[in-house]
Amino acid sequence: MSLEDKLGLLTYKSDTQAHIHIVSPKPCIEICKDKPCTTACPADVYRWEGDKIIVSYENCIECGACRMVCPFDNIACHWPRGGFGVKYRFG
């Protein structure tokens, strides 16, 4: 079962406002070799494309891991506004 299939099982109330921001593009491009956000995120929110990080915040399942794995404290991941984001049915 692919991640797309797994995420496809979920219900989200999508916000047009992103709740995740890369603080500065510089550390990702210039210093960060391992890019742990691209492997540790359970929803593949962070994808490296060409020379920049694509953040698919609408797939986020709100675990909070990205903030802790970023070696440069470069991910500002807040909660979506109240009521928005993932809506687990089982949890």
Partner: peptide
């Protein structure tokens, strides 16, 4: 993380225990 979960589902011991089930939700 999700590949680790997939590998778990395909482990021969686990595979037999969950055979015939269908996934309803993924969470982290």
């Amino acid at each position: 993380p999700y590949e680790l979960l997939e590998a778990l589902k395909n482990h021969p011991i686990v595979r037999r225990l969950i055979a015939g089930s269908s996934s309803l939700e993924y969470s982290a």
